[in-house]
Design a protein around this nucleic acid. Structure first.
Length: 808
RNA sequence: GUGGGCAUGGUGGAAUGGCAGACACAAAGGACUUAAAAUCCUUCGCCGCAAGGCAUGCGGGUUCAAGUCCCGCUGCCCGCACCA
């Protein structure tokens, strides 16, 4: 055993040295063109907040860094890019509070983020950085918007929007959480405004079908499916007595049509205005509508315990299957935004209708046998036979649905219909710090797109970017900028002053990474063809119905118009668990428990910090941060470092350690791929413990350990690799291979169970077969002693594991 | 209400139906040290002196064998929420 004393492990020096070398040599710059197979690994680019990184960021980043570093060792040309999603409210709010221009705030924050990320040693290709607030970038965000507009997917619509009273901004449905603003927690009310909308609903089916072609973790795919919310049913026309007009409803239960005893319109339904003169109690109806309009969405849903409503007197509908006249009501439990804004009420078989009928004493008819409608609605579709339903009597629900739908179609009374819960995307924000929507509003020509050669529409420098109380964007006050000429007729016109939501820039950034400096196109098709799609995308669950869905929509649109080579942007999607505060609470500024990774990089080094991020627990689980756990990882790296003082003679694996070496190579590799980083690290700890027990390690053993550990803690490995004279730079060293045969041991310990209880342990030949075991084990001395004079009824042998002997 | 997930030592967590608690953290004891830190060694689910027994949220079941599979509960977390 050699015994030269190494200098102590000093992460600070080592990490700075290797980070500089990687940067100087452009080690992680993705190559194009290249003959190698490509691998595109992606993490969600951060929002560069003023607070800097917190320990949650490195969790996702390190996980993908491990995969990307392993891929380079496996011979892939790897693209692992980074950028900044820098438009958005917090920056603007900070700017307002501190009277600093948001562009400056953004620049400073990005600089800080970049230096923090670099200190952690991620193998990002910094030469491809993107910044969504850079005009060279948002030029193309605007350009894509024009394409969407050109294809009829953007439209301006006067509609009630979710209005945050605190941010003074309209929000998408996805941004209203529990009735309050997702960002600031402020009250959200309904406000009617003319808004730019994107027709994501047009893509509902494609977005649904696309999920079958990609590899997303189950919960992500399920959540997206639920959010899109496809349901199949029928639309049915109900005649209105004495009128030509019909009232159309959507139902998923056409089979219950004979049980429809009344109808309900949503408060906003246009029929009410159309028949204003015929409604005998119009005053009462109008009063109800007004009450409903005043309520925020939150209040509406809060009050869903008690059903409210008013009968519309003077109007009456006819049930098309039995000719019965049924009353029409108005109630806010029916939403204008889903289906046709009107329903046929079947109180016998729908819980909400049942409650309503009970409240207002309306008739309840049983048309599906199997429940007890005197107690509750019976809504089971699995079993149940039609009754009181004329020609449907005796049919099971499923068949009744088909029969009645065919009948409706044949008689011209209705049709098959699919509805989605997904709503169009409200794309306007009345804010300064976002991409200007590149449209001009002309009194003569309407909304006219800014010609492509005039892009980007650059955000003007504004003195005062505070939001207005009127709901107008701060840009509206910039009259020099607002007043322009109509690109179509040349007459006086005004620029659109709304900006895009922060989801715009992130809806295509992964494309820009493929060709970040292109000034002729958002990205070159050939380059996209090489790099896309993203092989592996890791990110937070909170983006499942927002960013992840929006970006799939944009990408699918770009595919449909022939600008990108693949229909789905992401081949694989995984998700990390949150890092919680030390006491298990969610980390937040208000709780004051946010942990900055810098603290740990300084104290224990980036390598140990990265390791702890991965070792702390199952990757997809939320785990509290434990400072001592992090220090434990540093202790492990100290032990690894000291192996250099404990070198044994010989180049290869020692015989006693050979099986463990190969097992470790297999387990670490498999576990990295399965994102089971914690057990991969545990396995390396076990190996190092064995080295210590075996009085050190050989060069060959150390070499393998360094290769396995490199993706998690690259700096220390590089330094040791160089010190050991193994070569210069580990990035493209081949990933080690294992040999199944080499894992075989001469003896293996198995448990001997008597009647299912472990009574002893013996060493046997690992190759022993069931037949041999049945023959030889009962003769084994220890086994004999355990069995005693009892008779062996049965012997179950599990090779390499245990042997259960049933005795009597 | 509804969809999804989870429940294992003081803590974070391991465990293709096959020896529950790997690997760490914390704690305790010891060695080294004038001392401390660092390091190294030992102990460490519960009851019991021991033999042994009991243990993976609770109650059943399947199996030679269940943390793991099935049925029924309870609790916690996340998403959605009057979507006809």
């Amino acid at each position: 055993m050699q015994n030269k004393e190494c200098k102590p492990y000093d992460p600070k020096t080592i990490e700075a040295k290797w980070q500089k070398r990687w940067a100087d040599e452009g080690t992680f710059e993705a190559q194009y063109p290249s003959d190698k197979p490509k691998f595109y690994g992606l993490i969600e680019f951060p929002y560069p907040s003023g607070a800097g990184l917190h320990v949650g960021h490195p969790r996702s980043n390190t996980a993908m860094d491990i995969i990307c570093r392993k891929r380079r060792m496996e011979g892939y040309n790897v693209l692992y890019p980074i950028g900044y999603d820098a438009f958005g409210l917090p920056t603007e709010n900070y700017a307002i509070a501190n009277h600093i221009h948001p562009a400056k705030v953004t620049r400073d924050n990005i600089a800080r983020f970049r230096s923090q990320l670099k200190r952690l040693g991620f193998s990002f290709d910094y030469s491809r950085e993107v910044d969504t607030t850079d005009p060279d970038y948002y030029k193309w965000t605007q350009w894509i918007f024009l394409k969407l507009n050109e294809h009829g997917l953007a439209y301006k619509h006067e509609m009630p929007i979710n209005w945050c009273t605190s941010c003074k901004v309209g929000l998408a449905n996805e941004e209203v959480v529990g009735g309050v603003c997702e960002r600031c927690g402020g009250e959200v009310v309904r406000k009617v405004k003319s808004q730019w909308m994107l027709r994501i609903t047009e893509y509902a089916q494609k977005l649904l079908d696309g999920l079958d072609t990609v590899n997303f973790i189950d919960k992500v795919a399920i959540q997206q499916r639920n959010w899109i919310g496809r349901s199949e049913g029928a639309e049915v026309d109900f005649k209105i007595v004495g009128r030509d007009e019909k009232l159309r409803v959507f139902t998923t239960r056409p089979d219950t049509l004979f049980g429809a005893t009344y109808m309900v319109l949503s408060p906003e339904h246009p029929l009410i205005d159309a028949y204003k003169g015929d409604i005998k109690n119009y005053g009462e109806v109008a009063e109800y509508r007004e009450q409903a309009a005043r309520k925020s969405d939150f209040e509406r849903t809060e009050m869903n315990k008690d059903k409210t409503g008013v009968e519309i007197k003077g109007l009456c509908a006819v049930n098309p299957v039995n000719g019965e006249e049924i009353p029409i009501w108005i109630s806010d439990y029916v939403l204008m935004s889903y289906g046709t804004g009107a329903i046929m009420a079947v109180p016998g078989h729908d819980t909400r209708d049942y409650e309503f009928a009970k409240t207002f004493d309306l008739p309840i008819v049983e048309v599906i046998a199997g429940g007890d409608i005197s107690q509750e609605a019976y809504s089971d579709v699995e079993d149940g036979i039609l009754v009181n339903s004329g020609f449907l009597n005796g049919l099971p629900v499923k068949e009744a649905k088909e029969t009645i739908t065919a009948w409706l179609v044949e008689k011209g009374l209705g049709e098959k219909k699919v509805n989605y819960k997904l709503r169009d995307w409200i794309f306007s924000r009345q804010r300064y710090w976002g991409e200007p929507i590149p449209m001009v509003l002309c009194d003569t020509c309407g909304a006219v797109p800014v010609p492509e050669d005039q892009l980007p529409v650059v955000l003007p420098a504004v003195e005062d970017y505070e939001p207005t109380d009127t709901g107008e964007s701060p840009l509206a006050k910039m009259t020099d900028w607002v007043n322009t000429a109509c690109p179509q007729c040349g007459g006086p016109a005004k620029r659109e002053t709304d900006t895009m939501p922060n989801w715009a820039g992130s809806s295509w950034y992964f494309l820009r990474y493929c060709d970040p400096h292109n000034d002729k196109a958002f990205a070159d098709y050939e380059k996209l063809s090489y790099w896309m799609n993203v092989d592996w995308y890791n990110g937070g669950m909170e983006h499942t119905t927002l960013h992840l869905l929006y970006s799939r929509f944009w990408h699918r649109f770009l595919y449909d118009i022939g600008l990108v080579p693949c229909p789905e942007p992401y081949q694989k999607r995984t998700s990390h668990g949150m890092v919680l505060g030390e006491t298990g609470d969610k980390m937040s500024k208000s709780r004051g428990n946010v942990i900055n990774p810098d603290e740990y990089v300084t104290e224990i080094g980036a390598d140990a910090t990265r390791m702890y991020e991965m070792f702390m627990g199952a990757f997809d689980q939320a785990i509290p941060w434990n400072p001592n756990g992090a220090r434990g990882c540093r202790r492990f790296l100290d032990r690894v470092w000291r192996l250099m003082d404990m070198l044994n003679d010989g180049e290869g694996y020692r015989k006693a350690l050979t099986p463990l070496m190969h097992e470790t190579i297999r387990k670490v590799g498999d576990d990295y791929e399965a994102m089971k980083y914690n057990t991969a690290i545990a396995q390396m700890m076990t190996l190092v413990n064995e080295f210590y027990a075996a009085d050190g390690c050989t060069k060959g053993e150390l070499k393998t350990l360094l290769l396995l550990l490199y993706p998690v803690s690259p700096h220390i490995c590089e330094e040791m690799w160089e010190a050991m004279g193994f070569g210069s730079g580990m990035t493209f060293e081949p990933w080690p291979e294992y040999d199944e045969d080499a894992m075989k041991r001469s003896e293996v310990e198995i448990a001997i169970q008597i009647n299912g209880k472990v009574r002893g342990r013996i060493m046997i030949d690992p190759e022993m077969t069931r037949e041999q075991a049945a023959r030889e084990l009962p003769e084994h001395q220890q086994v004999k002693a355990l069995v005693g004079d009892r008779g062996i009824v049965k012997l179950i042998f599990v090779p390499g594991r245990n042997c259960n002997i049933i005795v009597k």
